[in-house]
C-alpha cells in the first residue's frame, strides 16, 4: 500500500476556493531506463488520478512517465458542502490506491 499525503483544509467557508495538495509514494519507473546488464526496466507508473467531491468528479489527470517519482499534484476547488473529498490513483500492474478526507463547511 502506497503511502499518500493529502493536504485539505479541515474547515472552509462556503464558496471559498480551497487548494488541495496530494503526494503519493511511487517509483514512476519510466520504462526508458536500462539496468547494468542492458536489460530494459519495464514501465511502472501511475497513469491516472481522480478526485471526487461528495461523489461528483471535480478533477482528473492523466500522468505520463515525465512525472517525477512520488507524484505531487496540487489543484483548487470551490468548497460547496460539508462532506467527503475522495482521491483515487491508478497505474500499471494493477496499482490502485483510494483515500478520502472530510471537510466541514462553516
Amino acid at each position: 500500500m502506497a503511502r499518500a499525503l493529502i493536504n485539505v483544509p479541515a474547515k472552509a467557508k462556503r464558496g471559498e476556493i480551497i487548494t488541495i495538495k496530494t503526494l503519493i509514494s511511487h517509483v514512476m519507473e519510466t520504462g526508458f531506463r536500462h539496468n547494468q546488464i542492458g536489460v530494459k526496466i519495464p514501465r511502472d507508473i501511475i497513469t491516472s488520478f481522480a478526485c471526487t467531491y461528495n461523489g461528483e468528479e471535480i478533477f482528473q489527470a492523466d500522468l505520463y512517465p515525465a512525472i517525477t517519482a512520488n507524484p505531487f499534484i496540487a489543484f483548487t476547488t470551490i468548497a460547496t458542502e460539508s462532506g467527503t473529498i475522495a482521491f483515487t490513483w491508478r497505474g500499471d500492474n494493477g496499482f490502485s490506491v483510494a483515500e478520502s478526507v472530510n471537510i466541514t463547511i462553516e
Binding site: I58, F59, D62, Y64, I67, T76
Partner: peptide, 14 residues
C-alpha cells in the same frame, strides 16, 4: 515522450 500531464477540470475548480 512529449506528454507530461493532461488534466481535466471544470467550473467546480474555482
Amino acid at each position: 515522450q512529449p506528454y507530461v500531464i493532461s488534466v481535466r477540470l471544470g467550473p467546480r475548480a474555482g
